[in-house]
Design a binder for these strands. Sequence first.
DNA 1: GTCTAAATCGAACGATCGCTCTAGAAGCCC
DNA 2: GGGCTTCTAGAGCGATCGTTCGATTTAGAC
Lengths: 214, 214
Amino acid sequence: MTLDSSRSRRAAAAVAVRPGEAGASSREVLLQTALDFFSKRGFTGTSIRDIANALGVSVSNIYHYFGSKEGLWLEIMEYSVKTLPDRLEGALTGIEAPLERFEALVRAHLTVSTSYQRELRMIFLQQDRLTDGGDRVNQDVQRAVLGIYIRELEALRAAGIIRTPHLKILAFNVLGVINWQLRWYRGDGPLPVDTVHREIVDFILHGLHGPDSN
Amino acid sequence: MTLDSSRSRRAAAAVAVRPGEAGASSREVLLQTALDFFSKRGFTGTSIRDIANALGVSVSNIYHYFGSKEGLWLEIMEYSVKTLPDRLEGALTGIEAPLERFEALVRAHLTVSTSYQRELRMIFLQQDRLTDGGDRVNQDVQRAVLGIYIRELEALRAAGIIRTPHLKILAFNVLGVINWQLRWYRGDGPLPVDTVHREIVDFILHGLHGPDSN
DNA sequence: GTCTAAATCGAACGATCGCTCTAGAAGCCC
DNA sequence: GGGCTTCTAGAGCGATCGTTCGATTTAGAC
């Protein structure tokens, strides 16, 4: 359920694998296991043998499907994090009022964050150990998301709802609240996801002073 | 200036080094270089040889002073991150009004974050690759800071200033804004540190709606 | 059945990892 | 000077790293 049904292909050695077959199943299992390790220990903290041994398969298997360790990383990025900007934009279509748009943006962001919690943890753990092309992916996505927030904040300022001239700082503050949730929130804890999302939206919109203060 | 004058000692092989001498200088340079690497590439992403080669010294030198890679990491934690809870508590002494206390807490936290930016980045990059004792340090500090925030938020609730029953979520939201700044703020950029701190305090206290909305 | 390609394995490569050991250089006390 | 401790270097240890390779197994097409 957390996986996209249409899967793109980019590996070096692997060729045409039809989705929904036994071959794809091996692929998926490898991706999921790699995701578990990458999101918990980061890129350098995870070895190819960690992933292979966890599944009881050989390391050559991974190279057969993904070509390299970085290829495996990028494959995970491909179906998850890279889709983030489009998903955020999609949540805005049809909404006109700036404040409504902004709230929809935050809510959509939280929803995607919940779906791709491990994938997003990966990019926030990773620290310039990939080749240039690999780093680019993360930077582009983060820049795109920031751009969306700044654009919406500009609309809020034009509407007279916010006054600060430092929209970039404001955008980072909002992103901080949303992304920090990736660090502390555990789905298996006592807090329901709806409660957490509602509290975060309230905090972003009203800060410490609750929604009844305006 | 970002270093404590009194330095604690815990290495395995090293013994009594008087501060302020030539011996201490080698030590300091090693610590600073290690700090640069750890804060940029994390624990697993940094090798002992990275640090030694950057300084043109031998790896044995590092082991002479710190005993192990983890010892080097913990030594950095010792003079910086571990002092965080005490510094936050110190900023609260003499202040009575809950809201004033909270604002002072946030401001002190931002000040310390600026002083120990690289050190704090280390602990947010690191991901359970240390031995049990090493992990404990980070966890204890983070728990202590969270405890301080929750205690102050309880005072705010008792004073009727906030209403939400989910103080833990609220505390994480505040910490998210503060800690996220470690990820994006560069001191050499165009934004003055005072401006950033003021915007963050305003955001935490009032959210998107500015300070004149209550 | 045969043929072919995808899937999987185990061994091994060179490089790098954290770390140890031995030994010489430098600094201080007398 | 000698005698001691501290500091530093370099070689090398076993382990693990990402990766490659040849060979074997599996599975579908005919």
